[in-house]
Every structure is written in C-alpha cells, then in structure tokens.
C-alpha cells in the first residue's frame, strides 16, 4: 500500500472509533452541563447497550432492531437511575460522582453474574468492503460514522433551534432563574439523563458492531469519553464533537504507525495537559451549575 492509502485508511479507522467516543462524550457533557454530576457510570451504560444488542442479535433479531432495543433499554435504565438515585444527589454533585463509581462496580458485576466475563461479539451487520484505489473501506465503519453524524446533528438541531433546546440552554445557564421563568427544570434534568443514556446505548450497539466487547469495556471507553468532554470543555457539545474527532484520529494514526501499546495513554495525557493549561477545555465550557465547591 502507498503511504497515502495507509493515511486515508487510518483516518477512517480513527473516525469510526471517534464516533463511539463522541456519543459518550455528548451524553457526559450534557449531563454535566445541567446537573454538575460527573457520571462515571456512563461507560457502563455504553457496555450495557452493547450487551443488549448482543442478546437481541443472539436471539435472532436483525442489527437495526437490536440497536433500537439497546437505545430504548439504556434510555429506560437512565430514567430509572435518575429517578431512583441521581436526583437525590443534585444538591451535592460530588456525591453524584461517588454514587456513579458505586454504579460502575454494580453494573459491571451484574453483567458478569448473568452473562459471564468473556468477550461477546456479533457477526458484522455489514460485511461489504469497498476497494477505492488502494484503500479498503469497510462499510460497517462508514455506517457507524454516518449514524453518529446523523444523531449528533439531530441533537444539535434540537438544542439550538427548538424551544425545548432553548429552555434547556437557559437551565444550563442558571437553574434557579430558569425555574422562575416557568421551565420545569427537574423534568429537563430527567430528560437529559434519558437522552444521554440513549446515546450511550446507541454507542454500545455501534461499538459491538465494530469490535467484541467485555463487561469491562465501559471503563476504558468512559475515560476516553471524559477526556474528550474535558478537552472540548465540559458542557460544550461542539467542543466534545471537535475533541472526539481529534482523539479518534490521533489514536487511529498511533495504532496504524506502530505505537499501539501507547494508544490508551494519549487520552489521559491530552486530558491532563488540557486541564493544566486550559482548565475549561480547548473550546471553552461551563464550570457546571454554580458548583458548591
């Protein structure tokens, strides 16, 4: 293969991973922007999305239906967890963070308990590989990228243009004032939790279409999602998308050019550097809803 072919190949690989990471990061950043809660269990939501997809495909359903099921199941889980647990931590976001650590442990091991800790994979939903010049393009990667672009664009549209989006942004800006203006802030918080969880569910379905997953996949993925959310500036969706692209491409290149053992380190190094020199991220974020500390 020519150098330029490898280059294009790596960009494509990087972009498809970046898509999944971006889906996590958007959920993380939305939830943080509105509630100040850093939900580390978000990666487990993704993992459970993947597991639901695996269960549905194993039961004989097609991938599209399985992905929809994953979105619904994880969205429902987000609803239950927000109503049952996270709403009691709204006054002290740090507690929400600690609770999410407990949730990581619980969710991982419940999955292990029922479906053993081994790798799980599904047959690729799209097996076609296009050859363009010297570049081999797996259609499943293109599918992942396109779905992500469509979903993220839709979320943007909802947040920037609809009246619900405007109310949401007002609540992020100032929760109390928004509530005084008649915006049902509590309901928006629940809604954002459900939306973020559903995006993670979709991310899980897309991830298992690309790679096998284990019950412990969520841990590494959420760190990358957080790295991206922080680099983009917590609370800033545009930033999250841009940073997701950067990280995905960096990781893709690193894997393609023989530094694969360091791939996982980049997100952490980038995150540490950004926090040190631009604590609000490269693209500016909110510091959360008037944090207690």
């Amino acid at each position: 293969m020519r150098a330029v072919d490898i280059f294009i190949q790596q960009i494509l690989n990087g972009l498809s991973i970046a898509s999944v990471i971006t889906l996590i990061a958007v959920g993380v950043t939305l939830i943080f922007g509105l509630t100040g809660i850093i939900n580390f269990a978000h990666g487990e939501f993704l993992m459970i999305g993947g597991i639901v997809t695996w269960l549905a495909v194993s039961a004989g359903l097609g991938f599209p239906l399985a992905a929809v099921l994953a979105i619904l199941a994880v969205g429902l889980m987000g609803y239950i967890l927000e109503r049952g647990i996270f709403r009691f931590t709204l006054e002290r976001p740090t507690n929400g963070f600690i609770v999410s650590l407990g949730l990581i442990v619980v969710l991982q091991h419940v999955v292990v308990l029922f479906w053993n800790p081994n790798q799980k994979s599904i047959p690729r939903p799209l097996t076609t590989v296009w050859e363009v010049g010297g570049v081999r393009i797996a259609s499943v990667r293109v599918m992942v990228i396109l779905i992500t672009v469509a979903v993220v664009a839709l979320s943007f549209r909802m947040i920037t243009a609809s009246r619900y989006g405007r109310a949401l942004r007002a609540s992020v800006e100032d929760r109390d004032t928004a509530a005084l203006m008649g915006i049902p802030v509590r309901r928006y918080i629940t809604g954002v939790f459900v939306l973020g969880s559903a995006l993670a569910g979709l991310g899980g379905a897309l991830l298992i279409a690309l790679f096998p997953i284990t019950p412990f996949t969520g841990g590494t993925m959420v760190m990358k999602g957080f790295a991206v959310a922080l680099i983009g500036g917590l609370g800033n969706i545009y930033g999250a998308v841009a940073a997701g692209l950067i990280l995905g491409i960096v990781e893709g290149f690193s894997a393609g050019y023989g530094f694969s053992q360091w791939t996982d380190a980049y997100s952490f190094v980038l995150m540490i550097l950004v926090l040190l020199f631009r604590p609000h991220g490269l693209f500016g974020g909110t510091s959360g809803p008037r944090m207690a500390s």
Binding site: F97, A227, L230, A265, M271, L275
Partner: peptide, 25 residues
C-alpha cells in the same frame, strides 16, 4: 491541585491509569 474539586478527581484517575500504562510498557 491547581484545578478545582471534580477536575482534580479526574486528574488523579488519569494519572493512576497512566502509571499502569507506563509500568506495562
């Protein structure tokens, strides 16, 4: 510790992961 509360938690988490990666490599 230059960065506040919750950012610090994530920083320590990241340093912990980095140490494990460095030790592995």
């Amino acid at each position: 510790l230059r960065v506040g509360g919750h950012h610090f938690v994530i920083m320590t988490f990241a340093f912990g992961q980095l140490l494990a990666i460095v030790l592995t490599n």
